[in-house]
Design a protein around this nucleic acid. Structure first.
Lengths: 346, 346
DNA sequence: TCCCGGGCTGACAACGTTGTCTAGGCTCTA
DNA sequence: TAGAGCCTAGACAACGTTGTCAGCCCGGGA
């Protein structure tokens, strides 16, 4: 009796299976399977009986078991930095739409910019046997994915390149975008331009810094070390860095901000200033046009990044397994809204 | 020979299984299982041999099969409206963090505000046998989830209540928040206050409208129908509605905006005006403090909504199945930044 | 009347893992 | 030295589904 109790209690909801449906409808197991999957070769009368049993029992096919049998899960994984970051929302959504168009479900997780957590998450997704993986890298060594890729998990990296392995990659043109943004400031008369960005170990940050230096060099302008601040994205440090380069012996008249979080903080700092300072930021953000002045930005298209990556992924899944890994770069767009066109003061 | 080829080719990457590992290590299948799961009762020497075989073959446990055997998937589903909406990013992230703390993976999908798609998505997640479901409803009839809930899928609704079924629900105090926001405008001298919100069939929109009316009534103020615009969230219509109520024979001196998208558009309209108009919006948004004037808002805590819902979910999963469904309301917070404290003109 | 073909249907194995149960070898004690 | 008891290890069934294959029934042609 104790055993019986445990038997029925073992899991809270003991869901009906095809076997239960078959028993109730008085048919064979396989017939239920056929009905559930809309296969042909079932008499209308039989089908009706099965349907009734399904309704009555509240049966729903167990896709876990199905997956085990079929080998494909019709799901893909997305590892990103932080879903709460407004840059990744549209990206994630774009990936989801492409997945949906291919009948696949999206499972996503945030790495919180922690390489270990990225790995943990990516491997957990592989253990779930996702068919493919879209990764926004937090770390710079992805050799841990090699066995998975070899085993057939299609993998595409987005926003930042893969580290130490060959794989499809979809990037924005960070170098070109930053160079254009800085050149824009130069074209408006600025000669002393500051750069505030993230740590150069992050590929995007390094590329943007390179773009900054290239634009300065192209214009024959020297860069004072005091104008460049790296590894600073949290508000406090950005504030300190901005104030420092604005008050030194050779103060900058314009700032190029390496990403949207930096830009927003710099806007706050500049708002407290009496003299006007020009600003161009990398990444667009909502309401940039409503500020006074509107914030000029180098915009990347997050949705396009996601869409391109996902499409590449499904192309691989649909048979193009042996195509060589490719690196796709998407153009950025300079949007002038006022802050980048402020002339140098003094 | 053709058969052999098909046998090995059938799926692109034929991943090694525990059986393969066992064969290579010269041990039994179950021993591999023990090593993989860190169970006790394996000689260090045996364990080493198994580990080597795992390395060599690039084995990774198939969680699909594991799930089938164990009955629990250690994953929960989240159905939300649109991941690209900045309100849902933090909410989703909060749910994810709670799930992670419970060792579960989050699978999420967007309903795109389409009831059919919400249902399709929720049922797909149930077919994957998620242990629980967090739903931000798009539709207003959730009876389709009854069999699932009965079968043991813990379900919590967030942001909007479930339709036609009993279930746990976590909401913001939309009524109280809107009432407070409007009362704030009244306290600053406004008598003619407009309301622009979404369709009242959406619960949150209806509650906020109710709050608006309550505040007006509490102050003994009549509401002119021309001051109330419903079912308008797209920029064009909001613009038209705002302009209409600002230019009528009895123009409003203040506007209460029913959600963040509306607020932003109204800010744009007001920016083009010469005379000052007061504004309070429901929902906070980034940079609201940087605008001129700063935008006063009734803020709801998206992360807290997600966290509360997820915690409730796991409490159910951890044994509290038979607790009666509950409705939890989280307080909102009025943040004064300037736009809501503008005195009435004229 | 018999045989054949085609349309339905169900029995059975397999997917990769884990729980149960039993076997064998070892140590320890009387 | 025998027996008890413990520790390690593996054989086997089961999870819920789908692919394969074989059997049944019915109608039509010889």
């Amino acid at each position: 009796m104790a055993e019986t109790a445990r038997g029925t209690e073992s899991r809270y909801g003991n869901r009906p299976t095809m076997k239960d449906v078959a028993a109730r409808a008085g048919v064979g197991l396989k017939t239920v399977s056929r009905v559930v999957n809309g296969e042909s070769g079932v008499t209308p009368d039989t089908e009706r009986r099965v349907q009734e049993a399904i309704e009555a029992l509240g049966f729903r096919r167990n896709d876990s078991a199905r997956v085990l049998r079929k080998g494909r899960t019709a799901s893909i994984g997305l590892v990103l930095e932080d879903l709460a970051d407004p840059f990744y929302g549209p990206l994630s959504r774009a990936v989801e739409e492409v997945a949906r168009a291919h009948g696949a479900l999206l499972i996503n997780g945030s790495s919180a910019e922690d390489p270990d957590r990225e790995q943990e998450l990516a491997l957990a997704l592989c253990a779930r046997r996702v068919d493919g993986l879209v990764v926004i890298p937090a770390g710079d060594d992805h050799r841990y994915l090699e066995p998975e890729i070899k085993a057939g998990v299609a993998t595409v990296f987005v926003d930042r390149p893969a580290g130490r392995i060959e794989a499809d990659t979809v990037l924005s043109d960070n170098f070109g975008g930053a160079r254009d943004g800085v050149a824009h400031l130069i074209a408006h008369g600025h000669r002393r331009i500051g750069f505030i960005g993230d740590q150069p170990r992050i590929h995007t940050a390094a590329e943007r810094l390179r773009g900054y230096r290239a634009a300065m060099e192209d214009a024959g302008l020297a860069v004072d070390d005091a104008w460049v601040s790296l590894g600073t994205t949290d508000a406090g440090r950005v504030r300190t860095a901005a104030e420092a380069m604005l008050t030194g012996p050779d103060p900058v008249t314009a700032i190029f901000a390496g990403n949207n979080r930096v830009t927003v903080t710099v806007v706050r700092v500049l708002a407290g200033l009496s003299r006007p300072v020009a600003l161009v930021g990398f990444d667009d953000f909502e309401l940039a046009d409503l500020l006074q002045p509107g914030v000029s930005v180098v915009a990347q298209d997050a949705a396009a990044l996601g869409r391109t990556a996902a499409e590449r992924l499904f192309r691989r899944l649909d048979g193009a397994q042996d195509v060589a890994p490719e690196r796709i770069e998407l153009a950025t767009r300079l949007i002038a809204r006022g802050s980048g066109e402020v002339p140098p003061a003094g």
